[in-house]
Amino acid sequence: MAEKKWMPRWFYQLASPRWCYEITGKLLPIFAIAAVATLLVGTVWALAFAPADYQQGNSFRIIYIHVPASILAQSCYMMMAVAGAIGLIWKMKVADMVAKACAPIGATIAILSLATGAIWGKPTWGSWWVWDARLTSMLILLFLYLGIIALNSAIENAQTAAQSTAVLALVGLVNIPIIKYSVDWWNTLHQPATFTLTERPAMPSEMWVPLLVMVIGFYCFFAVAMMLRLRNEIIQRERRSSWVRDLITG
């Protein structure tokens, strides 16, 4: 019995934060370069070379920010919930820290998605905000993020905070499909289908290839931001361990 448990415990509780700190140190520059490169290429391509939309003209180009932000905001929540579950079930400290690092990034990206949606709405619908199904779902996703951040900062003990947030994130994860479904249904009830920002008839490849580049760029950027926060958190939580002391003094 003790034999069986020795290996994971050693792996999870002792080696992980340090190993994680070192590996992210190596990965960070790679992802940073990739993020800068793809975002630069994608932005120039999207703004200067992709063709204008035949209905919306140039204003459609905001999808090159809006769509990647929306996708990322959702996958970030998924990642946060999965990391939280791993932390909860296997008591893996690093997973807790990953989950904690995800929340503020996800919230920021959700705000970016909402802001670009609103800006796009002005020339298209003539108002800054429309209760469009996707925008509404994104707003609720932002609320879920804000709840998680609020709970995490209200609990002082780091371990309790991580576990409580993980439970909440999992409850949210179960709810997201239900929320999405009900908001979509509510939307069709209250207004006939109009333009939506992202449901477009088959997009020509000149349009979607730069979009794909931007999506990849956003993911790389997310990886960079996440690793920076994670490393910060590791150093903070492990500040009394010898390896962090060595790192700081020498």
Binding site: I140, F143, L146, G147, A150, L151, I179, S182, V183
Partner: peptide, 8 residues
């Protein structure tokens, strides 16, 4: 804050 979004 935690519960209202889930009530929607």
């Amino acid at each position: 804050l935690l519960v209202l979004p889930l009530y929607i």
